[in-house]
Each structure stands twice: as structure tokens, then as C-alpha cells.
Design a protein around this nucleic acid. Structure first.
Length: 891
RNA sequence: GGGCCAUUAGCUCAGUUGGUUAGAGCGCCACGUUGACAUCGUGGAGGUCAGUGGUUCGAAUCCACUAUGGCCCACCA
């Protein structure tokens, strides 16, 4: 297999993915392998209408790294993919299409026909995002792809509803709900975004009843709602209005006299200190109305226009009514003044229209009891948030949780399993009632099912176990639940994460209490921002499309870059050139592998110990052992970018910069030493590919195959299912590490002399290495061949306390003087300048270090090792400084 | 109003329990290189670690306050 000199991801990615699929790599075996532990991850199901964005790409990468790592470690690993039916979003898409193409509304089609259309649409377009996850390399078990409206999940939804009903946790209430006038449905508190806007504060004068000529002025941002006023409130201790409490005002445009009441919640400093009470259209007023037994008047139709309560304004839109009411009041001289004000306005997440608080009949779930075990689980550490700070956010929400309004006035979704008899008595305690059946409690015939559907989250909160077969006690459920890891975005901690945890405790009843928590670790990933620090979003048009990135840089490069620039949960500004890093790195790996593949012994397994191993061999194997342990530890603790950094340094700075260069000195050598080098290359590449695989799965799989071909054998299996590398059999070799460090010092010293003297890089130099230490001299003597082989030097003299040759420059490294004879073209002034600068810097460092060593506190508290280290450092600095000064004097 | 996060090189970010001469990548400058890799190599310039005060022998790191930016929750007549 010929490898191209530059890695071309597009030549490989699709074929490799297909290979994985064909081999069934992502599907766990039918029977759990003996002794293995399960490791399960549930994908946060994206909306069926969704397309992949950077957040998905990041989160997909995180999950895939974890899953591939655990799979390699031998866990019985399952990653379940799927999509969410996303009630409002999907219905809106199909309605829009229907109107655009056929000019029809959903009512024109009728419920059944419309739903058929939505299912059609889902069949055709609903898998786009899952296809995109494949492009990313996600190793999901596609045979288990789930959808929140599948028959199985629908059955689970009905079962869960029935259980809640039987426990009395579901109730119907006339409540003020957040009404979306565009989508004409109730939405939950969590689907609302409050946006700061400029508005106006109108001061309306209400005539005081029975006191002609006296007015009570109220301030409001929504004058049109005055038609629904049923009272006016003032603070009980507000002296201005004390005499009015108990009296009434006459509400303009109506014949209503409404009471003036005293209420603690009124802020005397805001506006006039008097507030109109509109229980039908304001949550705070609703509460006030309840306290003072005021009637609730709804002045709006479901589409946001004024109903008959709107008097002469009936039929107008909210916006129009506002203008008309203000104009009419002005004419009656009941408008005192208008002020500019900033206030926040509730907008619907979905339609971006202004939310209207509206009294209507809705179904709710009591949350208090459900929240308790979910709070306990996190407090007791059964579930860990990463980063940990989200624990507090989660707990704060649960501790003040509101009841959950679960009914939605839509067609697309799980129709609420509640049936009514002819007297409208509801029943939710059976899952399979039909029209005509007797009502289980009243015995009267059922006449209809509730037309509303359930909130989308009422199905996705069952996701971790409903996708495994719940409520049936399936083998899958037994084997793969509870799950180990969940990674998701912070904005659904309340909507989804908290509810899944509640559902786990409430419904996973076949398990002992301690195993009911839906997952063990909840990772909240970074938010991807654009280069200006704004959140990427489709509407803002500032997003970078992951598919474009894959097209330009390759999936592996994108994965690696995303991981490297998103430290644990920390937001990140993303600009496209960040992907260069990943591309360069994948290319570096590719070329390192190419070099290795050109230098392998077919069919021969080299010993990785013994006399044939050179110091660099023992060094790189020692580094490999350290890196293997480090990366394993990082991944086990979900420190992805630490693992990525470690691998980057190892591959680039150790393996490529040093080992490959040193190995070249033995390239093609047909003896034990040459064979040893080739054996080491093979081992290091093999393990490195394994360690890198979770990050860059496509490329490492390609190289894995090429490596085995070059070795003259078939790979036993795909890298995707090969065991995770371990440091077993590799020795940490401190001596080899020290020796290599010394060699690196020498080369560093030579380079710095070159830089100082301007002697060209490849121009051969003669060097004299002088050391006071016999052991060091011996080590260097051993390394002579390698040092010369690196190409920096043409001749080398090694000895103890050698004299500085005439007309030479010197550098110091590790207590070692390196003299390099100077040619005639050397700029002595520049050399002097450089050396002086270095001496100056050393002077400063020596000063601060000796100060530290004179510090009694440091000597007392820092520990022996630290003190010894500082002493050694100081000695080194002093040696270097004096040697340099001596050399400087001789110039 | 309550809470969270950030502020380190021109840019994007590391810096694990306080103790190396504060790092990396990109960008910039100089030089080099065509048998793994120009998606390369070597060297360099560039930082009073947002500010102030405190704790400590010692603070980018811990504490308090301030400033700027971002996010979340609550309220908003």
C-alpha cells in the first residue's frame, strides 16, 4: 500500500467508515463477553429537523473518544444513537412546506392526514443529522437507532404517564401558562428567553369611584391589558393612597368598578406606587388576584387578538389594540404621561414571538416528589458533573422546581393518553382505551381522547432506558442500564438532564435504588463561540459548518482541533484557522508513519531488550511507557485536551524530532542494532496508533492496515476493536532519559553557538566537548556516533577539562563546555553581544535563586527535594556564567 | 437583585495540590532545508499574568474588593 506524501483524508474516510460498519465494530456482541463490564452512552438525540453544527461536532467527538477508548479497554461498550421528534420545530417545518407547496394548512388536511405527512417528511429528511454524525466518525451502534416516536418509545411514554397518573402526580389546572400566539400552544418556562428591550411606561388615570375629579394613576408597559383589569393594588403602608384602600376605581371603556387593594408586593417607588391588576395576563397579577379573590378576565383569543372582553377594541391584534387604547385614553384625557423604560420581554424560543401569559386549561406533573431522589443522587455523588460547577446550577433548579406543564396544543407528538366520558370526566389510568369503551371509574362511555400532545421532553426524559426496551425487562436493559457517561450542552441541564435523572429514579423500578441513576458522569461541554465571542447560531449566520471543515481539513483534523481548543467545559472562540493545527498534526503522524513503514523488517519480530538496543531505543521506549500511562489516566478522567497535548508532544517532539533523526543513523544497517531500531520503530508506531485512535480514528485505521502490510502480514483485526496499548513490558529507563537529555543539551549548545556566530546550519563544524566529569565524558564517548550522525558536527573531540582552542566560540550545556572553532566570516561583535546578554540574564537568575536559598522560610518549608533542586540549579547557573565570562574575556 | 465563568505574548489558549528562567500553536522577523513531512527545520522578537489590597518565607495560582466582557436564574406594573 503506497502512502501519499501528504495525508489526504478524503481518499480514505468513507471507505474506512464502511469497513467498520461491515465488520460490525460498533455493535456489541449478542452475548456479553464473560468478565467484561458494560459501558453505555446515549447520544443526546438531536432534533430530526436538525443539521450538524459545531456544538454537535464537539460533543460527538467527545463521546466518540470516550466510547472508542472504553471499547479498546475491553468494556462491553454501547453507544445508542437516535433523534428526537421535537414537536413544535418539526410540525412547523412541515406546515410551512405544506403551505408553500400546496397552499394548505394542517386543518385543511385534518389530523390524521397531516401526521402521515409529518412521518413521510421524517422518513425522507429525518436522518440527515445521523448521516452527518457518521462523517464525523461516530462509532454508534446504528442497528439500535431510536426515535422518540417509535412504537417502543411511544409505549414507554404511555406507560410512564399511566404510572404518574396512578400516583396522583398528574393534574389539570386552570393556570396562567406561557402562550405562544404564533404557534398557538403553551410553552414551558424553560422554553422562554427574556430579552432586554426598550419600551415605554404609560401612566393611566383611573377615575376614583364616588369622588368626581379624583384619579388614581397607574403605570404600565402594556396599556391594552387594562381591559382585563380587575383591581388596583397599592402598598399597605403607602400614605398617599391609604384612604383609597377599600374603595373602587371606574375602569375606562367598561362599566366595571374595580377594587383598590393593599398588597405587600407593590413597590411604592416604582411608577406611581399603584399597580393595575390583570390576573388574566400577568403572572404576578395572577398571584395578587388570587390573594384578593379578584376575578380573572381573559381578553385575548388564542391567536393574540382581542376577544369580546376587549369592548370596542375587540378583534384587533395586541399591537394594534395597544395603539388604539392609548389613543382613546388620550382623547378622554386619561393619559397622564409616557416614559421611556428598559424592561425585559419574554420571547418564545421557537417562534421568537412575544409570549402572552394566558389562562388556560393544561395538564401538569407535580415535580416536588420526583425531584427529591434526583437531588439526593447528586448530593451523594452517585452522579458527577464535569466541570463540577454545574452541580450547583442543577441543584438550584431542582430545589426551586416548578410543576411541569406537559400539554402542548400541537398535533405532532405523543397524544396525551387521557380519555373523557360523556360528562368530560378524564381518565389516564389505562393505556389502551378507545372511544366507546366504558370509563374505568364512571362506567360511562368514552367519547374522546384529549386532543393535546405531550411536551417533547416527556418522551426524551425516558431516553436512557426506553431505548433499551423499558418497560419490558429486556436483556439489554439488564445489561446496559444504567449508563456511564452523558455529554451534552449546558442549556438542556434543566430541560433534559435533570428530568432524565428524575425519570431514572421514578421508572427504573426493577433496579435497586443505587443503580437507578440514569448515568454516572455528566459532562457539560464547551459552548462554541465565533471569533467575536458570540454564540454560533443559525439565525445569526455566524456558524462554521462542520461539514465544510471536514471537506477542507478532514474529520480527524477537525476532531483533534476541537478537542485541543476546548479545555474542560470552557467556552471557546473558534475561527477557522484553528483547524490548521489538527491538519498539520495529522500530516506529521502520517509522515512519521511513512518513514517507519519504509524501514521495517518483514516477518521478523525484534527483541525489545538486550544489548542491541541503543540509548535512544531505550529512551523512546521509556517515553512511550510514560505517555501510555499518562494518556490512559487522562482519558479515564475525561481530560481530553491533556491527553491530546501529551500525544502531540510525544509524536512531534520526542518521536519525530529526536528518535527518527537518531534512527536514521542506523537506517538500513543489516545487523542486530539496525534490526533493533526497526523493531522499536514498529513497536512505537503500533502503540502510538492505538493511543491516537480515539482522537483520529480514520487516519490511524488506515495506517494500522498499512503497518501490517509493511510487516508482511494481515492485521488480526481492525484497530477500532484492538485492545488499548499498555506500558506492560516497557521499562521506564531513567538512565537512558538522562543520557538523551545530555545529548539534547549538547546539540542545543551547538545550535546556540551557530545562532550566535551565524555559522550556517549544515556547514560542518568541529566541536570540542569539555567536561570536568569522567562519567559524563564516557557517556558522550558512547554517543559519539549518534551525535555525529545528527549532521550538526563533522568532528568531535571529547575530553576532561580541555583547553579552549584558539579562536573559538563557546556555549555551555549541562555543565559542559562546547567549543566551536570560528571561521573568518564570524561576526565577533554579534557573538559578544549574544554572550553578554546571556550572562546578564544568568546574573539575574543567580541573584533570585540565591536569594531564595538564603530565605529561611524556604529552607524550612519547601522540602528537601525542592531545596536540593534549587541548589543544583544555582550551581549550574554559576558554572555556565563563569565559563561564559571566561570565554567572553578571551574573545 | 442573586449566581457562575473569563481576563496570561499581536491572535486563540495551556499553566493539575502556591515553589523550574511563565509555556504551546498560529502570526511576525532571520536563517536553513528538496530521500518521512515546505502542512518541514533552527533561532529570534514579543508578557509589570486586568487593577488594588491581603494571606505567605514565596502568589499567574489562595482570599477580598474593583474594572471589563460573557452566561444563567429571579424580578420587572
Amino acid at each position: 500500500m503506497e502512502l501519499e506524501p501528504r495525508y489526504d483524508p478524503h481518499a480514505h474516510e468513507q471507505a474506512i467508515y464502511q469497513t467498520w460498519l461491515d465488520a460490525g465494530c460498533f455493535t456489541p456482541p449478542k452475548e456479553q463477553p464473560p468478565g467484561s463490564k458494560p459501558f453505555t452512552v446515549m447520544i443526546p438525540p438531536p432534533n430530526v429537523t436538525g443539521v450538524l453544527h459545531m456544538g454537535h461536532a464537539l460533543n460527538g467527538t467527545i463521546q466518540d473518544i470516550v466510547v472508542r477508548f472504553r471499547r479498546a479497554q475491553g468494556y462491553d461498550t454501547l453507544w445508542v444513537p437516535g433523534t428526537d421528534h421535537a414537536g413544535i420545530a418539526t410540525q412547523a417545518v412541515v406546515e410551512k412546506k405544506l403551505y408553500a407547496e400546496e397552499g394548505k394548512t394542517r386543518e385543511d388536511l385534518g389530523r390524521e392526514a397531516f401526521l402521515a405527512r409529518v412521518f413521510d417528511w421524517k422518513e425522507q429528511h429525518g436522518n440527515i443529522i445521523l448521516e452527518q454524525f457518521r462523517r464525523l466518525g461516530a462509532s454508534c451502534d446504528w442497528s439500535r437507532t431510536a426515535f422518540t416516536m417509535d412504537a417502543e418509545l411511544s409505549a414507554a411514554v404511555r406507560e410512564s404517564f399511566l404510572r404518574l397518573w396512578k400516583k396522583g402526580l398528574i393534574y389539570r389546572g386552570a393556570r396562567l401558562v406561557n402562550w405562544d400566539c404564533v404557534l398557538q400552544t403553551a410553552v414551558s418556562d424553560d422554553e422562554i428567553e427574556n430579552v432586554e428591550r426598550k419600551g415605554k411606561l404609560w401612566y393611566l388615570k383611573y377615575p376614583v369611584a364616588g369622588q368626581a375629579g379624583r384619579f388614581l394613576t397607574v403605570a404600565t408597559t402594556r396599556p391594552e391589558t387594562m381591559l382585563g383589569d380587575t383591581g388596583v393594588a397599592v402598598h399597605p403602608e403607602d400614605e398617599r393612597y391609604g384612604d383609597l384602600v377599600g374603595g373602587h376605581v371606574e375602569l375606562p371603556f367598561t362599566d366595571r368598578k374595580i377594587p383598590i387593594v393593599a398588597d405587600e408586593t407593590v413597590d411604592p417607588k416604582f411608577g406611581t406606587g399603584a399597580v393595575k391588576i390583570t390576573p388574566g395576563h400577568d403572572p404576578a397579577d395572577y398571584e395578587r388576584g388570587q390573594r384578593h379573590q379578584l376575578p380573572v378576565i381573559n381578553i385575548l383569543n388564542k391567536d393574540g387578538t382581542l376577544n369580546d372582553e376587549g369592548q370596542q377594541f375587540a378583534g384587533a391584534s395586541r399591537e394594534q389594540a395597544r395603539k388604539d387604547v392609548v389613543a382613546a385614553l388620550e382623547q378622554l384625557e386619561l393619559l397622564e404621561k409616557i416614559e421611556d423604560i428598559k424592561h425585559s420581554v419574554p420571547l418564545s424560543d421557537r417562534s421568537k414571538s412575544v409570549i402572552e401569559p394566558l389562562v388556560s386549561e393544561q395538564w401538569f406533573v407535580k415535580m416536588g416528589e420526583l425531584a427529591e431522589p434526583a437531588i439526593r443522587a447528586v448530593n451523594e455523588g452517585k452522579l458527577q458533573f464535569r466541570p463540577e460547577r454545574w452541580k450547583k446550577v442543577y441543584l438550584d433548579w431542582l430545589e426551586g422546581v416548578h410543576d411541569w406543564c406537559i400539554s402542548r396544543q400541537l398535533w405532532w407528538g405523543h397524544q396525551i393518553p387521557i380519555w373523557y366520558d360523556e360528562d368530560d370526566v378524564p381518565c389516564g389510568s389505562a393505556t389502551d382505551l378507545k372511544v366507546g369503551d366504558p370509563h374505568p371509574e364512571t362506567g360511562k362511555p368514552i367519547v374522546r381522547q384529549d386532543p393535546d400532545v405531550l411536551d417533547t421532553w416527556a418522551s426524551s426524559w425516558l431516553w436512557p432506558f426506553a431505548t433499551l426496551g423499558w418497560p419490558n425487562k429486556t436483556a439489554d436493559l439488564e445489561r446496559f442500564y444504567p449508563t456511564q457517561f452523558l455529554s451534552t450542552a449546558r442549556d438542556i441541564i434543566y430541560l433534559w438532564v435533570a428530568r432524565m435523572i428524575m425519570a431514572g429514579y421514578e421508572f427504573a423500578d426493577h433496579l435497586p435504588e443505587e443503580q437507578r441513576c440514569a448515568f454516572a458522569v455528566c459532562n457539560i461541554h464547551a459552548t462554541v463561540l465565533d471569533a467575536k465571542g458570540k454564540r454560533m447560531s443559525k439565525s445569526a449566520g455566524n456558524g462554521i459548518d462542520p461539514l465544510d471543515v471536514i471537506a477542507e481539513y478532514g474529520a480527524d483534523a477537525m476532531r483533534y482541533s476541537l478537542i485541543m481548543l476546548t479545555r474542560e467545559g470552557q467556552d471557546v472562540r473558534l475561527s477557522e484557522n484553528r483547524f490548521e493545527e489538527g491538519k498539520r498534526f495529522t500530516n506529521k503522524i502520517w509522515n512519521a508513519a511513512r518513514f517507519v513503514l519504509m524501514n521495517l523488517d518483514k516477518g521478523r519480530v525484534a527483541e525489545l531488550s538486550g544489548a542491541a538496543l541503543q540509548v535512544e531505543d531505550r529512551w523512546i521506549l521509556s517515553r512511550l511507557a510514560a505517555v501510555t500511562d499518562e494518556v490512559t489516566d487522562d482519558l479515564e478522567n475525561y481530560r481530553f485536551n491533556d491527553a491530546g497535548t501529551t500525544l502531540y508532544r510525544f509524536v512531534w517532539n520526542d518521536f519525530c524530532d529526536w528518535y527518527l533523526e537518531l534512527a536514521k543513523t542506523r537506517q538500513g544497517q543489516d545487523d542486530d542494532s539496525g534490526a533493533a531500531a526497526r523493531g522499536v520503530l514498529s513497536r512505537v508506531l503500533t502503540d502510538t496508533l492505538g493511543l491516537l485512535h480515539p482522537f483520529t480514528p480514520f487516519q490511524t485505521e488506515v495506517l494500522w492496515k498499512a503497518l501490517h502490510e509493511a510487516l508482511g502480514r494481515e492485521a488480526e483485526q481492525l484497530l477500532a476493536v484492538t485492545a488499548w496499548p499498555t506500558a506492560e513490558g516497557l521499562e521506564r529507563d531513567v538512565q537512558a532519559e538522562e543520557r538523551l537529555n545530555l545529548m539534547q543539551d549538547v546539540v542545543g549548545a551547538v545550535r546556540s553557538v551557530r545562532a550566535l556566530t551565524g555559522v550556517a546550519e549544515r556547514k560542518p563544524l568541529t566541536a570540542v566537548l569539555s567536561t570536568p566529569d569522567a562519567a559524563t565524558a564516557a557517556v558522550l564517548e558512547e554517543a559519539r556516533a549518534q551525535l555525529l550522525g545528527l549532521g550538526h558536527l563533522s568532528e568531535l573531540t571529547i575530553g576532561r577539562d580541555l583547553e579552549r582552542p584558539a579562536n573559538s566560540a563557546a556555549a555551555v550545556a549541562g555543565g559542559l563546555e562546547v567549543f566551536v572553532p570560528l571561521g573568518e566570516d564570524v561576526d565577533t561583535a554579534k557573538l559578544k553581544e549574544g554572550l553578554t546578554k546571556r550572562v546578564e540574564k544568568l546574573g539575574k537568575v543567580i541573584m533570585s535563586t540565591s536569594k531564595k536559598l538564603e530565605n529561611p522560610g524556604f529552607l524550612k518549608n519547601a522540602g528537601e527535594d525542592a531545596v536540593a533542586e534549587e541548589r543544583a540549579k544555582l550551581a549550574e547557573f554559576e558554572t555556565e556564567s563563569s565559563l561564559l565570562q571566561r570565554n567572553l574575556a578571551g574573545l
